[in-house]
Design a protein around this nucleic acid. Structure first.
Length: 762
DNA sequence: ACCTTCGGTAAGGGTAATAGTTATGG
DNA sequence: ACCATAACTATTACCCTTACCGAAGG
């Protein structure tokens, strides 16, 4: 971690990849990214493992320069007693770095609220206690638990990896070391003193976990891929020769010790493969019940020693036994019922009801309880995964958003039998049987120039989100009843969801992540509905504000004042035309600093989508008119200290008349807000769906031709950096996929696999 | 001699993704 | 009968925790 300079209210973090959060005299927190500091971001060679470094193709400079970086902002409490945060900003690509250099992110102001006080002390204490402890024994953990500490377990989230990578990078930079593997594999313990401690900063995990993670990450013998038959043969021999000396075996094979160990677990010389015989199933059931002292018919999903079971079953490995039991046999024995479409919807609803911020918080055991069509908690979890994948970019959206999206999707399907073909009574779950039901993509706007404030940083900023229903067929548009949407005919349908992206807890107390992805960019400027800005508070907060700033361009084309959305009954958000700005400033509850530069536009093409349907999309090339933005800047750059340069006005409830409210709820008004013009053939969005107006409202706006740019400017590789920062492991895989992909003549990134599926399934 | 910390190994429970198989509908 | 596709099942590469060990240092 870099030096921290404290000065009463202000904290300056001298880190190249960071922006600072300062507090002004009025108690506002200001996130600031100085330009000169940003300069450094891309000036250095990356310190990531060079052989694993992600490279973004620059075949098309234009498109890349225009692309929006993937930026994640992580706010961490700096110390117990002040209320400042360090905000770590990471960018995915070199391009992203450039973008930052140009000062895309300028200022975010967050109104402080009372809750803020609670964040820092609590968070910090826990972070330090846990991440500085090696604790490998149960007692250690118990003792910390007793002291009220909580820490993260299980799979590392992308956000955590971001933090880790960032920490490592800084450590390297600070010491002028090029390659982390030098430290990890070459240095003596003494030489790398403090390394793990330092890089564990901000991660709410024990040192040991960090240590393991790092070792795995940088060990290039760890993710080599599939074992060849040849390797298997050698492995068998080595096993006989060296027994359980995994390190030696691994070295001989060029694999990590854990890799060969794991592989050996899968190979029992007596192992059958393929379908289980009845005899085997019977034996498995007997053994499980015997070893767990349970009766046939009992539900047994935990506390089974699978190694012991496999030993007794004889013809199957422990994993085969476990899988067979948890995914089929136990359910079958205990009188399970078939999983239906209703179950699927039910699952989504139940998960939504849990109201958890993070998927890891879901208690699958509880959820699976008393649900006869659920085969096991583990099975339910994997079911959830398949459901989740209906959202093409599920990896890139926050959990609450995902849930909303899925709810919406299934609601639509329910309301629109035309979208679903499986209603014809077979009873067989058949979610994707029709070409008009499809994967959905949730799109998230990047929080950038036009940022706003939230009265409650605790719960979050919200970012507008779009959901894209993607239909790759040429089938005529599905017509949907009034509850939903009338699709325009065309090859691609897009909808938009507003609002809902939370500043997401990372698992580390007091740490939140604001996440976007490069491929998502800021679609909104390109889209029919150029939503730009937003912010929100705690759902319960009366000050809750969601702001959607339509592009002034758009506003000029429609009306001067367009009410966009009522997110809560208490607050009305209104965007206004530029002419109204001056007068509305005084009313604005939020301060928006918008440092719009023409270089920020146009927004990147939506690589994912465009890449998905390269042959089916014949969208005209979207051209942005920078002149407008320039004009916008010049027009408002002289604004006074309110810093309101964005055409946004927020009004509190008191100011809202009944008329306004009615207007809010009027779909036609909303529709008009999103009318767009296709450069080739002007299209009017015919109908807009807005369901109920309450906290849960998701506004769906069809915008069939939005954010799709001509496919020719889209390089597949620009899709790659879906993951923030660069996890060498992920990268490694990506590179591999690329190699494979190229040999087929079309590079395919790992992250675009979903997209592939999407295409393939039609 | 004893304790603590750090770094490490082996075992085993687990997940996520994919490969393989079967069912289904045209 | 045939094919394409979706759904389901099996497999496997990799992940993470736990228990435990030993060297170094106080």
């Amino acid at each position: 971690m870099s030096t921290v300079e404290e000065d009463s209210d202000t904290v300056t973090v001298e880190t190249v990849n960071s922006v600072t959060l300062t507090q002004d005299t009025e108690g506002n927190l200001i996130l600031h990214c100085p330009q000169n500091e940003a300069d450094e971001i891309d000036s250095e060679d990356s310190t990531e493992p060079p052989h694993k470094r992600l490279c973004l193709s620059s075949e098309d400079d234009q498109s890349i320069d225009d692309s929006t970086p993937c930026i994640s902002v992580v706010a961490l409490p700096l110390s117990e007693n002040d209320q400042s945060f360090e905000v770590t900003m990471t960018a995915t690509t070199e391009v992203a770095d450039d973008e930052i250099t140009e000062g895309t992110v300028t200022q975010i102001q967050i109104l402080q609220n009372e809750q803020l006080d609670e964040i820092s002390p609590l968070g910090n204490e826990e972070v330090s206690a846990v991440s500085q402890a090696w604790f490998t024994t149960k007692e250690d953990k118990d003792s910390l638990t007793n002291k009220g500490h909580k820490w993260k377990q299980g799979m590392w989230s992308k956000e955590e990896i971001d933090i880790l990578m960032n920490n490592i990078e800084r450590y390297l930079k600070a010491r002028g070391i090029k390659d982390a593997t030098e430290i990890i594999f070459e240095m003596s313990k003494d030489e790398r003193k403090d390394f793990y401690r330092t890089i564990a900063w901000g991660l709410n995990r024990p040192l040991f976990a960090v240590y393991r993670r790092v070792l795995r990450m940088y060990d290039d013998r760890n993710h080599v891929g599939k074992y060849t038959p040849d390797e298997i043969e050698k492995l068998k021999e080595l096993r006989i020769k060296h027994g359980n000396d995994w390190a030696t075996i691994g070295a001989a094979l060029g694999r990590s010790a854990s890799s060969v160990k794991d592989r050996c677990r899968l190979m029992k010389d007596t192992c059958n493969t393929g379908k289980w015989t009845e005899e085997e199933e019977k034996r498995l059931a007997e053994v499980v019940h015997e070893l767990t002292s349970t009766e046939p018919g009992d539900i047994v999903t935990q506390g089974v020693s699978w190694a012991a079971v496999a030993e007794r079953v004889g013809t199957r490995s422990e994993k085969q036994c476990r899988s067979k039991w948890l995914n089929y046999l136990n359910w079958k024995q205990s009188g399970g019922t078939e999983w239906t479409k209703e179950d699927e919807i039910n699952l989504i609803l139940r998960i939504a009801e849990l109201d958890v911020a993070d998927e890891n918080d879901i208690n699958w055991d509880l959820l699976a309880e008393g649900w006869s069509s659920v085969r096991s908690p583990q099975w339910l979890r994997s079911k959830w995964w398949t459901i989740k994948r209906q959202i093409a970019n599920h990896k890139d959206v926050s959990f609450p958003v995902l849930i909303k999206g899925l709810k919406q999707l299934h609601e639509n399907q329910k309301n629109n039998p035309t979208l679903l073909e499986n209603k014809s009574g077979s009873g067989v779950p058949n979610s994707n049987s029709n070409s008009s039901v499809q994967h959905v993509q949730i799109r998230v706007a990047r929080l950038e120039d036009n940022t706003a404030i939230s009265p409650s940083p605790m719960t979050a900023l919200q970012i507008p989100v779009q959901i894209t229903h993607v239909s790759s067929t040429d089938s005529p548009a599905a017509t949907v009843d009034s509850e939903t949407i009338t699709l325009n005919s065309g090859t691609l349908q897009t909808f938009e969801i507003l609002p809902s992206f939370h500043l997401q807890p990372t698992g580390t107390p007091g740490t939140y992540l604001l996440q976007t992805s490069s491929s998502q960019g800021l679609p909104l400027t390109l889209t029919a509905s150029p939503t730009v800005t937003l912010t929100a508070a705690a759902p319960a907060s009366p000050e809750q504000i969601i702001v959607h700033a339509l592009s002034p361009e758009h506003l000029l084309n429609t009306s001067d004042s367009v009410t966009v959305q009522c997110h809560t009954p208490r607050v009305i958000i209104q965007t206004v035309a530029t002419e109204d700005i001056t007068s509305s400033i005084s009313q604005a509850e939020l301060t928006v600093d918008s440092d719009i530069q023409s270089s920020d536009f146009p927004e990147p093409p939506d690589a994912l989508e465009a890449d998905t349907f390269p042959d089916e999309i014949h969208q005209p090339k979207m051209t942005i008119e920078p002149s407008f933005n320039d004009a916008h800047v010049s027009k408002f750059s002289d604004q006074n200290s309110t810093e309101l340069m964005n055409s946004v006005m927020v009004r509190t409830e008191e100011e809202i008349s009944d008329t306004d409210l009615k207007q809010e709820e009027s779909p036609s008004d909303l529709a008009s807000a999103y009318v767009t013009e296709d450069l080739e053939s002007p299209t009017i969005v015919e109908q807009v769906d807005q369901t109920t107006i309450d906290d849960e409202t998701i506004l769906i706006v069809p915008s069939p031709h939005s954010f799709i740019q001509a496919s020719d400017v889209i390089d597949t590789e620009s899709v790659l950096p879906l993951t923030t920062l660069t996890d060498p492991i992920l990268q490694h895989h990506q590179e591999e996929s690329n190699i494979i992909g190229s040999s087929l003549g079309s590079p395919v990134s790992e992250d675009s696999k979903d997209v592939e599926d999407l295409v393939n399934c039609h």
